[in-house]
Simulated assay, not measured.
Amino acid sequence: MNKLKRIFKVGAREIDAPLPNGSLQENVDQLMVNFPMFRFTHILEVDGIPQSDGSILYEVELPPCKTNG
């Protein structure tokens, strides 16, 4: 199996996938442990943007902040 480098971009921060041999869902599940914002978003394989170095970049869209009033 090819090692596919995945990078998750949240705002200006780029986070490398914690499980290089894991699936996209396994990586997202692992990221949820340290980054709770991943619980509130959906990331699909087709969302990946191929990079010139062969990695795949996933831009994570966070839900809007809730306000009262």
Rank of each mutant, 00 (worst) to 15 (best):
L57Q: 03
P64G: 08
G48M: 06
I7R: 15
F35P: 00
E26N: 10
D47F: 03
L24Y: 12
I43R: 01
F38R: 08
P64M: 05
M32T: 12
H42C: 01
H42D: 10
V60E: 07
G69K: 13
P36N: 11
L19P: 02
N2I: 12
L44M: 09
E14K: 15
V28R: 01
Q30P: 00
R13D: 13
I7M: 11
E59L: 05
V33Q: 13
L24D: 08
F8L: 06
Q30S: 14
N34M: 06
E61T: 11
V33M: 09
L19M: 10
A12Q: 14
S52M: 04
I56P: 00
M37E: 14
L19W: 01
Q51D: 00
P18G: 07
K66D: 03
F8S: 08
G54P: 02
L62P: 00
E61L: 09
R13W: 02
N2M: 09
N2Y: 05
V28P: 00
P20N: 06
L57R: 07
C65D: 05
A12Y: 04
I56T: 14
A17S: 15
E59W: 00
D53G: 04
I15T: 03
L62M: 13
N68I: 12
K66H: 06
Q25V: 11
F8R: 10
L4I: 14
P18W: 05
Y58M: 04
F38Y: 05
D47C: 05
F8Q: 06
L19N: 12
R6S: 09
Q51L: 14
K3G: 01
P20D: 08
Y58P: 06
T41Y: 02
Q51Y: 03
D47S: 10
V10L: 13
T67S: 11
G22Y: 02
N27P: 04
G48W: 09
D29A: 14
C65F: 09
L4A: 08
H42Q: 15
F40P: 00
E14L: 12
D53Y: 09
P20M: 11
H42M: 10
P64K: 12
D16E: 15
A12K: 14
S55C: 12
P20A: 11
F35L: 11
R6L: 14
E59N: 11
